[in-house]
């Protein structure tokens, strides 16, 4: 579904990603771990299509298309979803307004009819229940004044509403209490299917206790330095990143 090969990315002329290879197949869940500043969010943003990141080499293919050619909204309509590490506040635009426009855009792209107001509300109710979010938050401005946990839940709500093919969750588990963490995990697990894939960027094992990944990768200084099965996550939790040779050759890290 997603094939990243030899991806090099620079920001303002500074190389950040230095040859990433990552293949994610439909039905798989991958975890990406790694120290602060290693390039995890950069990778997530490049997949989502954020401007300001210069791809200096390599490519990304998604469902057999050249992903880098597509505008961010085209990627979203093609089924890519990024849950932001730092969700953006948008005063004056109601959460529900975003959900409705976004869903209708995505449905149109999938060749489905737009939902009318009543059907849309019914549908959103079911998603709210799934992520355990207060209905009141639907009518507030997007993320404005939301607590840290509410913002993260809101990302998962959007994901649950849009039902993406490929979801990238950038530290959605950070700063969550146990209940919120479970709600996020429930949201993710509910979406898990053989047609969908997920990439979880995380620092902690605890999310992976609820969502068992197929593969775990370590990103350090812009390179994938190690990949393994779920047991790699617990090993990292115990030993940290110090024991890894972060200058390792790219080839070793191929998944």
């Amino acid at each position: 579904m997603l094939e990243i090969s030899n991806l090099h990315v620079a920001v303002n002329g500074t190389p950040i990603l230095k040859g990433i290879d990552l293949t994610v197949r439909a039905g798989e869940v991958h975890a990406v771990m790694g120290p602060n500043g290693s390039g995890k969010s950069t990778l997530a943003h490049v997949i989502a299509g954020r401007e300001g990141y210069e791809v200096t080499a390599g490519e990304i293919r998604y469902l057999d298309r050249n992903l880098l050619e597509l505008a961010p909204e085209e990627r979203a309509r093609a089924g890519i979803f990024l849950a932001f590490q730092y969700p953006v506040e948008i005063p004056g635009v109601a959460n529900i307004q975003l959900l409705k426009s976004a869903l209708n855009q995505v449905r149109r792209a999938r060749g489905e009819a737009e939902l009318d107001a009543m059907d849309f509300l019914d549908y959103v109710q079911t998603r709210l229940a799934l992520v355990g979010m207060k209905e009141e938050l639907l009518y507030r401005s997007i993320n404005e004044g939301f607590s840290g946990g509410e913002k993260k839940r809101n990302e998962i709500l959007q994901m649950a509403v849009l039902e993406p093919r490929l979801a990238i969750l950038d530290e959605t588990d950070s700063g969550l209490d146990i209940d919120a963490l479970k709600a996020v995990a429930d949201g993710v697990n509910a979406l898990r299917s053989h047609e969908r894939a997920m990439v979880l960027v995380t620092h902690y094992q605890r999310l992976l206790n609820y969502i068992r990944p197929d593969r775990v990768h370590v990103l350090a200084a812009g390179r994938m330095v190690k990949s393994g099965g779920p047991e790699l996550a617990s090993e990292l939790e115990e030993r940290g990143y110090g024991w890894l040779d972060t200058t390792a050759e790219v080839g070793e890290a191929r998944a």
């Binding site: 989502a48 299509g49 954020r50 401007e51 505008a71 961010p72 909204e73 990627r75 979203a76 309509r77 979803f81 990024l82 932001f84 969700p87 953006v88 948008i90 635009v93 975003l98 426009s101 976004a102 855009q105 995505v106 792209a109 997007i142 959007q158 849009l162």
Partner: peptide, 13 residues
């Protein structure tokens, strides 16, 4: 960053 957030949800530029 607000523009990108909305676009990343499928809303056109």
């Amino acid at each position: 960053s607000q523009v990108f957030y909305l676009r990343s949800r499928g809303i056109g530029d």
